[in-house]
Design a protein around this nucleic acid. Structure first.
Length: 229
DNA sequence: GCGACAG
DNA sequence: ATCTTGTCGC
């Protein structure tokens, strides 16, 4: 397990963090379709915390997109770099996620984040931010609708409806399993919304959440246990 | 002003 | 995120 380094100039206040989002937002690429589902590699990233010691552990798990077999994995531990503030999640999670991605022995391909991308108060969520910093194609798959509204999609797997912020469609509520609560998909960087949903469906042959995030979630929890006496 | 609010 | 056992159902 490698160690997290907090990037130079990492914001220390909410005001500065919002300014960074407003600045980096300009660099998001939204006009690329992204890699075709079922090809190449897909990497799930997730983070776990120990609030007692202000510890954070991130995991990155690389899957073969066709078989969903694990190809590689890496973890990173470090000190928490920012409190949890709705809308500023990226500043809490990204340093650890970057360290885990750096520790991988191979290229990650498409990165699937636990959270949002475009669906964000300033249109620059975790997935967008990670995409801009790494240049990698990214998407966000969240478990909750955050502050957004949506119409309940149809009951079957594959049904989807718009995730709405005012006038804009910022993502999609996507049913990944029959009769189960939808997930909330949004674009991060260099991937279209249709393609992001197709990837999400390809990653959910058995469970509600993408196999990538399930793997990353269990790995970072295990690693946190081992890092905590 | 008050409440809600990804993880 | 995290605290947490058993339990209902395929």
């Amino acid at each position: 397990m490698t160690t997290v380094r907090i990037p130079a100039g990492w914001p220390a206040t909410e005001e500065r963090a919002r300014a960074v989002q407003d600045e980096l937002r300009e660099r998001v690429v939204l006009d690329e379709p992204g890699p075709p589902p079922g090809t190449g590699r897909v990497t799930g990233v997730d983070v776990a915390y120990d609030d007692e010691r202000d510890l954070v552990v991130a995991a990155a798990v690389v899957l073969d997109a066709a078989t969903l077999d694990v190809v590689a994995e890496a973890t990173a531990v470090g000190q928490v770099s920012f409190p949890y503030v709705p809308g500023l999640l990226a500043f809490r999670e990204i340093p650890a996620v970057l360290a885990a991605l750096d520790a991988l022995p191979c290229a990650p391909g498409l990165v699937v984040c636990d959270g949002y991308g475009l669906a964000h108060p300033r249109r620059f969520g975790l997935a967008s931010h990670l995409g801009v910093l790494t240049g990698l194609p990214t998407i966000g798959v969240a478990k909750n609708p955050f502050t957004f509204s949506y119409e309940e999609p149809g009951p079957r797997r594959g049904s989807a409806s718009a995730l709405v912020s005012g006038e804009d469609e910022v993502g999609r509520a996507l049913r990944t399993r029959d009769g189960v609560k939808p997930v909330f998909v949004s674009v991060g960087h260099r991937v279209s919304l249709d393609n992001a949903c197709a990837h999400t469906l390809a990653l959910t042959p058995k469970y509600r959440l993408p196999e990538s995030t399930r793997r990353a979630d269990s790995l970072c929890r295990r690693a946190l246990q081992e890092a905590t006496p």
